[in-house]
Design a protein around this nucleic acid. Structure first.
Length: 728
DNA sequence: ATTCTTTAGTTTTTT
DNA sequence: ACTAAAGAAT
């Protein structure tokens, strides 16, 4: 009947055209999941079952949300403005901004990212003089976020030992501080919003009345709180619940580490009285060998909901595996293969280079840069996370709300204006006395001592200057458009001047300029172009701002970031035990199964060709590590794989040999050369400490000592004369 | 108070 | 290897 519904298989068609009821769609990788989701929305609107106003679609990443909107607008020539499409956090932020009073928040409430949050926790630990050895800030952060993601306020957390009790007190102190500063962390966005809806019947009914159709992508990655929020919003327990269309794949659940729980799928079936589960099992993406490899691998996981992907396509080429002697050789192999593919006509943007952890991108980038292959890195160090941008944002936040202690502390002496630790301490004491923010304390101090004039002027000059600076900035705010506010702030704060003076400041200045551009384009694109909205955008979409996205470039990202994307060719690097699966996850079954799902995700990104590579040795944390091939390679059937030979040739790898000689030269020039068997990188055996690698040495003759990194006991300095080291 | 130097922790993945 | 924090020197 309509062009929307052509070229669909029966299951896809059924999912798309389902009447007003809730449904669970189990969609395997490459089964047209996103297409089904977007087509359903378009179909619902086109057939008049709902107006854009009544649709709410939740995705997991901003990238996915954007993609969804683009696809819908391509299918339907309508204005999608009324539709709510976004991430859980984005949608909650939107609701909280709209109803900030009911939510007990300032109009200008700010969002803390993970680093901000950690800084805040560190500050609280210091204030309460808690030993941060005993209570590592990271662990406190983990505790707080976990509680929030389970939907628990401090008052409801149950603890049974003194350690947890202390953690709970810290949680409480943290909550207080957040409330006073008017800041909100990531899980707080959800929890606040959930509480708002459950407390406020009018609002709840308003939104229930509005959103008759709710669609959720990547449902397997939702955590408990997100699910509760969804249930509440949809009115699962009412007579007229919304039609909730949920798409997920338990085999692609890779966010358990931040509370995602596939049990939500079972609960969804129960809570929404699901009578229909639709399975999409035909894969339209990958060739046979790739799919066979993925299926065989994921079979090793237990407790799957069960589904088997199949394809009409031919077997295609085998997966190519390359076992490199070291990480530089691995990189140059990848570079060569990418060049070859590109020469054959594959667009660089259709080639992805994936890795398990961000740290691995360095070596790869180096080789790509030397080969002048254009590439684009997703994730890693993001624009809004750079320190100069963080400083600038802190000033902007203070303009919006000077009570924000976090931001104040970040920039009160940056650029330096003579406010040292001493003055800061005084200020913090004052704030504690008054039980107020640092800003209020500073105002109070100046106000109080203005009568004593002379001395104050000397002691507090820096602080007075800072207060005047922020006050002046605040006066202009409101009158000026956003980009001008940013521009003025950059000069008035002295950030520009500071980075102009710095040796390596050129990049930073460029980034600060880019911030003005970001503000300009934000004003053009966003409906709400207020300062607060811009700051929320900066916190929530930290990764989305990427310069130079226009040209054809190779795509570099972690496997996590690659979920939901597909490429003609995929390179998966670092397939070694300890790296992938990661050593932190290898010890328990759950961790290992999640790693395997991650591997599954990685494999299924490829349409036509897939390259797997590993290195026998690689630099990590400044040390050479020797790894064995990943167990996942053994889980892929041999007939899918084609092992490539590595050719040990000096000329093939000029960078690596050059680098090595540089390192060695330095060592030799400063110290006498030890006998040839004791050299850096040599594997040795010690009677007591076991196996290790020599990482450094000094002295000579009877004084000669070597530093050895032992597998079991870490690094030790040993006198060669006494330590009976054996070469392995 | 600021800047230079040394040291310790850190990195798994992300909204 | 790299960065943030602590310590020492100016």
């Amino acid at each position: 009947m309509s062009s929307l519904l052509t070229d669909l298989n029966p299951q896809q068609l059924e999912a798309i055209t389902l009447p007003h009821q809730s449904v669970l769609v189990l969609a395997g990788a490459g089964s047209g999941k996103t297409r089904v989701l977007t087509t359903r929305i378009a179909h619902l609107i086109q057939s008049g079952q709902v107006s854009p106003h009544g649709v709410l679609a939740v995705t997991f990443t901003n990238k996915a949300a954007k993609e969804m909107l683009t696809r819908i607008t391509a299918m339907l020539p309508i204005n999608t403005r009324g539709m709510w499409v976004g991430t859980f956090h984005g949608l909650c932020n939107r609701m909280l901004r709209t109803h900030c009073q009911d939510a007990g928040l300032l109009q200008t409430f700010q969002i803390l990212d993970m680093a901000d949050q950690l800084g805040m926790i560190k500050r609280i630990l210091k204030r309460l003089s808690v030993d941060d050895k005993q209570f590592p800030p990271r662990q406190v952060q983990w505790f707080i976020n976990n509680a929030k993601e389970a939907g628990l306020r401090a008052a409801y957390v149950e603890v049974d030992d003194t350690f947890s009790r202390r953690l709970l007190e810290l949680y409480q102190a943290y909550e207080q501080q957040c409330n006073r500063d008017g800041v909100v962390d990531f899980p707080e966005l959800l929890l606040r919003c959930y509480e708002l809806l459950s407390r406020n019947e009018i609002l709840r009914d308003h939104y229930r009345e509005r959103f008759h159709y709710i669609l959720v992508d990547e449902f397997q990655d939702t955590n408990r709180l997100q699910y509760k929020w969804l249930k509440l919003l949809a009115g699962a327990d009412t007579k007229t619940p919304a039609a909730v269309f949920v798409v997920g794949d338990d085999d692609q659940s890779i966010y358990a580490f931040r509370g995602a729980d596939t049990k939500n799928m079972k609960e969804f079936e129960r809570d929404f009285g699901i009578s229909k589960v639709i399975k999409l099992e035909q894969n339209y993406r990958s060739h046979g060998n790739i799919l066979e490899a993925a299926n065989a691998l994921i079979k090793n996981n237990s407790g799957r909901l069960g589904k088997n992907l199949w394809t009409d396509e031919g077997q295609g080429e085998p997966l190519r595996v390359y076992n490199a002697p070291n990480d530089y050789d691995e990189a140059s192999f990848i570079v060569d293969e990418i060049k070859a593919l590109h020469a054959e006509g594959v667009a660089l943007s259709q080639i992805a280079l994936l890795y398990r952890s961000n740290a691995q991108s360095r070596v790869l980038e180096h080789s790509l840069f030397n080969a002048s292959l254009p590439y684009r890195v997703y994730g890693g160090m993001r624009f809004f996370e750079r320190q100069e941008i963080k400083h600038a944002l802190a000033y902007l936040r203070l303009i919006a709300n000077p009570e924000d202690d976090n931001s104040l502390l970040r920039v009160i002496n940056f650029p330096t204006r003579g406010i040292g630790s001493r003055s800061l301490e005084q200020l913090q004491d004052e704030a504690r006395h008054l039980d107020s923010s640092l800003w209020a304390a500073a105002l109070h101090k100046i106000g109080g001592e203005v009568t004593i004039m002379q001395q104050t002027e000397k002691v507090q000059k820096g602080v007075v200057g800072f207060i005047q600076l922020i006050t002046t900035m605040r006066q202009d705010w409101g009158a000026l458009p956003l980009p001008q506010i940013v521009e003025q702030m950059l000069t008035q704060s002295g950030l520009i001047a500071h980075y102009s003076k710095e040796r390596e400041g050129a990049d930073r200045l460029e980034n600060l300029n880019e911030l003005i551009n970001a503000a300009t384009s934000f004003v053009h694109e966003a409906e709400d172009d207020s300062l607060a909205a811009f700051l929320a955008h900066a916190a929530l979409e930290a990764g989305e701002h990427q310069a130079g996205s226009g040209q054809d470039a190779l795509q570099l990202m972690t496997v996590h970031a690659a979920k939901g994307l597909e490429f003609h060719s995929v390179f998966l690097s670092g397939l070694e035990e300890g790296l992938f699966p990661h050593e932190n996850s290898m010890n328990d079954t759950n961790g290992l199964e999640e790693e395997r799902r991650l591997m599954y995700v990685a494999i299924t990104r490829a349409r036509r060709s897939l390259y797997l590579s590993l290195a026998q040795s690689r630099m990590l944390h400044g040390q050479t590590r020797y790894n064995i091939p990943s167990r996942f390679l053994n889980e892929i059937p041999e007939n899918c794989l084609k092992w490539l030979q590595s050719v040990p040739q000096q000329s093939m790898n000029p960078y690596h040999s050059e680098k090595n000689t540089v390192v060695k030269k330095e060592k030799f020039s400063q110290q006498s050369a030890p006998s040839s068997q004791w050299r850096i990188g040599q594997n040795v055996q010690h009677a007591k400490f076991g196996l290790g690698v020599i990482v450094n040495y000094e002295g000579s003759g009877s004084d000669a000592r070597v530093q050895v990194n032992f597998n079991r006991v870490g690094t030790k300095w040993l006198l060669l004369e006494y330590a009976k080291l054996a070469v392995v």
